[in-house]
Design a protein around this nucleic acid. Structure first.
Lengths: 222, 222
DNA sequence: AAGAATCTTAAAATTTCCTTAAAAGAACCG
DNA sequence: CGGTTCTTTTAAGGAAATTTTAAGATTCTT
């Protein structure tokens, strides 16, 4: 899952980046409003963390622009002010939630997870067939046995399962899981799909990760 | 919380009853050993205060009977004697704690609270596999031997064990144990994990603290 | 059967972690 | 205070695991 952080204070943004990467998110940083808008226009993020007080275009303006341009992408804004009117203002501008500085990392994480929940009200456990992944403990169970996955394996699997049934193109996978913004000629994906299949499939020979020749992969139940 | 007081001196027992009722305990009085046993058999108390020198059956005998009949109910005995042998005798008879007369009401209250704490669900002993930590005394036992831990070692271990099974990311650890909420580029965690492993692991080579590359650590039983 | 896409494997490159030693900081004690 | 000891933090080289690259094998499509 890919997150954009718009925040000028290096200390905070790096702290957030590291923390979120430990939770297997792919993270981009934008130090000001312009850069934030630019990145959000070009890339397809799953969520935006937006500081209210940033150089250049204000946070609230960035929020409006993003909402206007396209998407229903979840936006959480970070604010030092916490008067009722500020918060109302922010939510009216299109934000989905807010958090007051200073905040505990875990509280932020909880709010992020709430926003990323699918409409079906799913929680911190993703399931597909015999595979079950706990986003909180980073544990993955397949065929009743626990399987150790690396970071990249974990986020690739998460992406596939969140989009179960849908074809995940190579381009989208590279963007969401590897956080690369440019066209790249690499075969990492193949290799990682192979890793996952080896670790997760039963011995039946048929993988739950299906190859769609010419475009990408789909995770499907039997 | 319901308390039984076995005590013959009216002055003392009423003083205790009033004081404890002000602290919102429910209190019953027994003026002698027989009455004490009778009441404790009929009713379900959360704690017993037991005077050593009472008419009829002695305090120590009451203690033994209660222990024999049923429960692990906490018993605190009140004694005027305070020779080592008396105390040892009392504790061996099954008492959980003792207090010397004369005592400050506050002190008694504190001891009562200590005894009730575990019952109220606030554990003061954390366990994981062969490791056991007493939060009150700050003692840690591993593989049946007591191990001396420093403050930081202790709180790191506490955090890991409280979250057993879950991945504790570096960010979370730094927040909870070191109380830092900003970007920090440090390797203290590695060092302290190393300290704990050295002090707590048996010689088997496998630590109960597992590292999750790219995220953090988990404490897990075998 | 030829070409393209994907799979598989092995090894290189990189990142992260472990371990150790020493410096810096606190607490203790005369 | 001044020295001593214990704790905490920093730093750095080496070890280990992950990630990426690369290249030959395999499968699929036409």
């Amino acid at each position: 899952m890919r997150i954009l952080i718009v925040e000028d204070e290096k200390g905070i943004s790096n702290f957030l980046k590291d923390g979120l990467e430990e939770e297997s998110f792919a993270v981009d940083l934008a130090p000001d409003g312009n850069k934030g808008l630019e990145l959000s226009a070009v890339n397809d993020y799953d969520l935006v963390l937006l500081d209210w007080m940033i150089p250049g275009i204000s946070g609230i303006e960035v929020c409006r622009q993003i909402r206007k341009s396209n998407s229903s992408i979840p936006i959480i804004f970070l604010t030092a002010k916490d008067t009722v009117s500020d918060i109302v203002f922010g939510l009216e501008a299109g934000a989905n939630d807010y958090i007051k500085k200073p905040f505990k990392f875990e509280e932020l994480l909880a709010r992020i997870r709430v926003q990323l929940r699918t409409k079906e009200g799913e929680q911190n456990i993703l399931k597909l067939g015999k595979v079950e992944m706990n986003l909180e403990t980073h544990q993955v169970i397949s065929n009743l046995k626990e399987v150790a996955l690396t970071q990249k394996e974990f986020s690739l699997l998460e992406y596939l399962i969140r989009n179960k049934g849908k074809v995940c193109t190579r381009t989208r996978i590279i963007e969401h899981v590897w956080d690369m913004h440019f066209d790249s000629d690499t075969s990492v994906i193949d290799v990682y799909i192979n890793f996952l299949r080896k670790k997760l499939d039963d011995g039946s020979g048929r993988s739950f990760i299906h190859t769609i020749r010419g475009s990408g992969y789909v995770a499907r139940e039997e």
